[in-house]
């Protein structure tokens, strides 16, 4: 799992670089003033050598420790897998833009259709349904009562919740809480949204999901060209200037949620989307090898911490060990 916010630590290199530069500019002069110009050559050369390696090792320290925070991973490590069964939490955006008909019949209907197909494809699984706008709520708790789930899908519409907005963070967090406790099942969240003007911090929620080992599969419903939002009376949604609002699929947040949580992103208008989601769910459900082991990316943070500490060790060594009887 990569921790993208760790990248900001690289910014520390800027002040460190400035300090190194200043020390180079002034250090030698300061040194002569203290130690006497009569030793200029010997001291100056040693200063240069020590300054160079000391700076280099400190920069290495910052780089390595940042890489450790980032959680750079390569290779796979086998993890024993006792999980049985599949629990899916559907998180469905029911903001008004989901009424747009750029995907036929509408984004919302297409999402519901896809949810229905997935329920049929995994008859032994438990499902929960979470709807969100500005707020999120559990439309159905996790249950294997498919009868109930499918009968209730038809009651889902954008008017079911009045809170304005599209707070995907709340949706995801509600979904994380909807999985039954004390179960060793493969748990997956599937998020349907057009990704437009998402509120909340989806990345935090995605990280929480990743920590719990729950990948979020995101499905972007909508098209790049977008379309207008038709209302029940046949008119279209207008903005404050009286112009018709065009809504488009915005993929960035959805892609980020998928990548941070270890899920995958799919486009709702892709004909093969359903097959791929099913295949992915099947892969997630059954451990990949036959001996009940699954493979997880191996986080190499320990190697980078060690490298960072070794860099610091050299950095201190350069300082502490006296060279040529000078300093």
């Amino acid at each position: 799992m990569l921790t993208p916010y760790g990248v900001w630590l690289f910014l520390l290199l800027v002040p460190v670089g400035l300090i190194i530069w200043r020390r180079y500019k002034n250090g030698r002069r300061d040194l002569m003033r203290i130690a006497g110009f009569w030793r200029e050559e010997a001291l100056g050369n040693l200063f240069l050598v020590k300054w160079f390696f000391s700076s280099l090792t400190f920069v290495c320290f910052i780089i390595f420790s940042t890489l450790a925070v980032l959680g750079v991973a390569w290779g796979k490590t086998p993890v024993k897998d006792d999980r049985q069964g599949l629990d899916i939490g559907f998180v469905l955006d029911i903001s008004r833009s989901m009424l747009c008909a750029d995907i036929q019949p509408t984004r919302l209907d297409r999402s519901l259709e896809s949810i229905g197909i997935l329920m049929d494809s995994f008859p032994e699984s438990r499902f929960s349904i979470i709807l969100f706008k500005g707020e999120a709520f559990k439309f159905s708790p996790a249950t294997e009562d498919h009868q109930y789930l499918k009968a209730n899908l038809q009651y889902i519409n954008t008017g079911i919740l009045t809170a304005a907005g599209t707070n995907v963070e709340k949706g995801l967090i509600t979904a994380l809480g909807s999985f039954p406790p004390g179960e060793e099942t493969t748990q997956v969240i599937i998020l349907y949204s057009d990704g437009e003007s998402l509120e909340g911090d989806p990345e935090t929620a995605a990280r929480d999901a990743a920590e719990l080992g729950i990948p979020v599969i995101t499905v972007g419903v909508g098209t790049d060209e977008g379309g207008m939002i038709s209302l029940a009376d046949g008119s279209f949604v207008k903005n404050s200037r009286g112009e018709q609002v065009i809504t488009r699929l915005v993929e960035e947040d959805l892609q980020r949620i998928a990548s941070v949580s270890g899920g995958a992103y799919f486009r709702g208008d892709d004909m093969l989307m359903m097959q791929e989601v099913k295949k992915l769910l099947n892969d997630m459900r059954s451990p990949k090898s036959e001996t009940d082991f699954r493979y997880e990316p191996k986080n190499r943070f320990r190697l980078f911490i060690l490298l960072a500490l070794v860099s610091l060790l050299f950095n201190q060594g350069i300082r502490v060990l006296k060279w040529k009887d000078l300093f």
């Binding site: 460190v16 300090i19 390696f53 320290f61 450790a68 925070v69 911490i305 610091l312």
Partner: peptide
């Protein structure tokens, strides 16, 4: 895993030491 919390704290402690010595106190010897 919570090692990242420790790492970030550690980085800032060591960075703080570096800034105090090199920028504030203008330590001459590398």
């Amino acid at each position: 895993p919570r090692h990242n919390v420790f790492l970030v704290i550690g980085i800032f402690l060591l960075f703080g030491d570096y800034v105090i010595r090199k920028a504030l106190l203008k330590e001459v010897l590398p």
